[in-house]
Design a protein around this nucleic acid. Sequence first.
RNA 1: CGGGAUGUAGCGUAGUCCGGUUAUCGCGCCUGCUUUGGGAGCAGGAGACCCCCAGUUCGAAUCUGGGCAUCCCGACCA
Length: 466
Amino acid sequence: MAKDFPKRSENYSEWYNELVVRADLAEQSAVRGCMVIKPYGYAIWEKMHDQLDRMFKQTGHQNAYFPLFIPKSFLSREAEHVEGFAKECAVVTHHRLMNDPNGSGVVVDPAAKLEEELIVRPTSETIIWSTYKNWIKSYRDLPILCNQWANVVRWEMRTRMFLRTAEFLWQEGHTAHATREEAEAETRKMLEVYAEFAEKYMAMPVLKGHKSPNERFAGALDTLCIEAMMQDGKALQAGTSHFLGQNFAKAFEVQFLNKQNTLEYVWATSWGVSTRLMGALIMTHSDDNGLVLPPHLAPIHVAIVPICKSDEQQRQLDEHIAPIVKALEAKGLVVKYDNRPEYKPGWKFNEYEFKGVPVRLAIGPRDLENGTCEVCRRDTLEKITMPIEGIADHVADLMEAIQSNLYKKAADFLCHWDGTVETEERIKEETKATIRCIPFDAPEEEGKCIYSGKPSHRRVVFARSY
RNA sequence: CGGGAUGUAGCGUAGUCCGGUUAUCGCGCCUGCUUUGGGAGCAGGAGACCCCCAGUUCGAAUCUGGGCAUCCCGACCA
């Protein structure tokens, strides 16, 4: 009996559950929207983490770590920053528990009330700039190019798996520069790093551009973003890079002596991507059979399923397949040889498709006789039988083929969506659409604003957003 | 925080309108035999505070009141 598998049209919750589950904490609204990342899901995040980290280091950045707790007063320092958020946050008010005098369990010790509340970081600009103040005295101390891998908490009113969980993992870069030009260049450079990562590793085409002033980061002079188009037609903000000007330097009094021996405020940037990228990955490539992972980020590259009728045959296959595994591993591939007897081959086929493993090999008695094996690629679900001879080379080539095919498929979809005339038509009907970004490479052209009718010389990208 | 829906076994569900034996079915799980090239078959078995609290009643998954949670749509997402 075939199990009923979820269809893409029903949203992606079943796919997420392969990677992540909603945390089963106490029945309190207090913990809603937290997630547990399962090992398979975390393996994908680790791959993203490692690759991004490599790219950050190649661009001269170093990792550091700053406190989880931020004194409440820090969040009041930068006016726009305060205005823009500081609302949906977790607040620590006490530092000790005590035994419940009325019974079992523990209660908050009222005597342990903090004089100043601590905020669980929603982002780290304030605490980092309060630290940078002590690090920066002279132009010789600049630039400071730091990145932090951490978790942050934002008390979202409505949570959504991966896209808007209360707690999420991310990376936040915070840089300090002597000149405006250098800071602006950094802002742009890191956006390019994100775009390259999205396109090369996630096989996810993105649009690069500016956020409209409305959607800018609180306290930033300019916010750059990459936006990706999901299969359901909605746009997803996949990463942002902010030019903060001197706002935080002024708020935290971070000045340096320049070569002319005069005091000057430091110029700042910040930039980040989060586990939301995993949501993007799923919604960009998955199909009705489950996840589809680009080889560059897949925790398992090749699953090998033996097919046999007896223990004797199983032993034969184990022997036969061992060198194939070795050959594949020698190509740098992660191989899963699944010879568990308790599951049937058909079950395993579905299992690895569901997990998005890029390539599956099936080898049975027939192949044993003919010296062949069956190769199935996840992106096209195309199956071919080919000789074992040279299989490792073939599979290694397939990885590149699948990686670029996934990008191509996603890019075709993107182009289809970005027929701007059509988009403009739709915006008239659906006012839900917002300006996602103003692309860098938008050609200068004359026109008029579809809303106000006033003359305009540039097109922007509208879409419904997550 | 507004509007709508939902809450029954690990998961998905029937039953709820119109109260009445031992709460239905499927998946999954356990045992045994047969199986293995696309989620195996048969037989047996275990598993449920029917979201919580209070009320009505001889009797509540079912009715009433309150609470909590989840999902969808808004607002919000720095």
